[in-house]
Every structure is written in structure tokens, then in C-alpha cells.
Simulated scan of single mutants.
Amino acid sequence: MLTATLAFAGVAALINVTPGLDTLLVVRTSVAHGRTGGYAAALGIITGCLAWGLATAVGLTALLTASRLAYDTLRIAGAGYLAWLGITALWRSRQQGRHDGEMDAADETAAASPDASHGRLAAFRAGLATNLLNPKAGVFYMSLIPQFIPHGAAVFSTTLLLTAIDVLELAIWFAVLSRAASALGERARRRSFRRRMEQISGITFLGFAANLVLAERA
């Protein structure tokens, strides 16, 4: 059991640090809204992973491969949400473009305003939605975790254990990412930098959306 657990931890760590949608969301949110915003987005992603892990433990994720309709419905919904995030980011960059050359003095005080809590809630929702509306996340848990469950081990408890390991690794990785990205955001106060970040994020979100639409079921 220990050998299988350590092997899973190593594989999961490699997968978790590979750049992808979750990394982009945490970095972009940390730059735009500071460390607490990045933490909120990370918490949303981790909550989604916990949900997928629990669904795998009780066998619900098998529906994603057994039912084409279930997989495609979730896939299209996820692509639509990512497209909305991309369009929103591009629109925000366009609005910020009208104020090029101004310093982000307003952003410095925004964290102390009541709107900051709303921003953190929005970041959490974005992290949760992008994870839960991605059927590939469910297929990932369903296909990877069973490979590391030793013969004769209790499937439910072992699945939850491996999920907890994956989530712990994600939490550590996202904390490092958020701290680094928020520090970068604090040093780059100019709106032009924030605008460029929104443009890159928007285009990338749209790319992920297109990939999800065109992807075949695993």
C-alpha cells in the first residue's frame, strides 16, 4: 500500500505542475486580484477535485464514459463557460486600454473595499466551475486513481486517500503559484501590464474552450 501511495504521489505531482487551465486561472487571478484572490480560485479548483474524487469513489464518474450524452453535455457546458471567461477577459482588457498610462492607484485600494470579498467569491466560483464543468477532470480521476489501488484494498477508502494526496499537492503548488504571481502583480502596477495579462488570458481561455468543443471523448 505504501509503495502504491508513493508512486501515485509522484505521478500526481508531475501532472499537477504541468501548465494547464487550472494554472492559468490561479496565476491570472493572483495577478489581477492579489494573493487572496488566487487562493480563492485555488480553493474553488480544489473543491472541484474533492467532488470528482468522491464521485470516483462511489462510481459516479463511470457515467462519463458510459453515457455519451452525459459527457457531451458537460463538455459543451464547460466550453461555453470557458468561452465566457475568455470574452469577459478580452472585454476587460479593452476597457482598461482606454486608461493606458494611468497607475493602478484604484487597484491598490480595491482590496480594502467591500468589493474585495465579492471578487474572492467570484474567483472561487470560477475555479469551481472550470473544474466541475470539465469532463476530462472526471475521466482523469476515474482512469488514474484505480491504477494505484492495490489488489484487495478497500476501493472507497483508498480512492479518498489518493484524492486527499492529490488535493494536498495541488494546495501546495497553488500556494506557491499565487504568491509568485501576486508578487509580480504588485510590482507591475501599470494598467498596460494588467491589460496585456487579460488579453493573454482571454485568448487562452478561448483556446481551451475550442479544444474542449473539438475533443473526442476519452
Results as ranks from 00 to 15, higher is better:
189 R>V: 07
165 I>Q: 08
184 L>S: 04
189 R>G: 07
184 L>W: 12
183 A>C: 05
145 I>F: 05
178 S>M: 00
149 I>R: 02
142 M>A: 13
158 T>M: 07
138 G>C: 11
183 A>F: 03
153 A>V: 14
186 E>V: 09
146 P>R: 11
156 F>Q: 07
179 R>F: 11
152 G>R: 01
148 F>Y: 15
169 E>C: 02
191 R>C: 00
140 F>D: 13
151 H>T: 14
151 H>Q: 14
147 Q>W: 06
191 R>W: 02
161 L>D: 00
163 T>P: 11
187 R>N: 15
165 I>H: 04
143 S>W: 02
158 T>D: 05
180 A>T: 13
156 F>C: 04
149 I>C: 08
163 T>C: 04
147 Q>E: 15
185 G>H: 04
141 Y>G: 14
174 F>L: 09
166 D>W: 01
189 R>Y: 01
184 L>Y: 13
185 G>E: 10
169 E>R: 02
154 A>Y: 03
152 G>Q: 09
151 H>Y: 10
162 L>G: 00
149 I>N: 06
162 L>T: 00
156 F>A: 10
163 T>I: 12
152 G>D: 07
187 R>Q: 15
177 L>H: 10
143 S>T: 15
143 S>D: 11
161 L>C: 01
159 T>E: 03
178 S>F: 10
157 S>N: 06
173 W>E: 06
182 S>I: 02
152 G>L: 09
159 T>G: 04
186 E>C: 07
145 I>M: 06
169 E>F: 07
182 S>Y: 01
166 D>E: 09
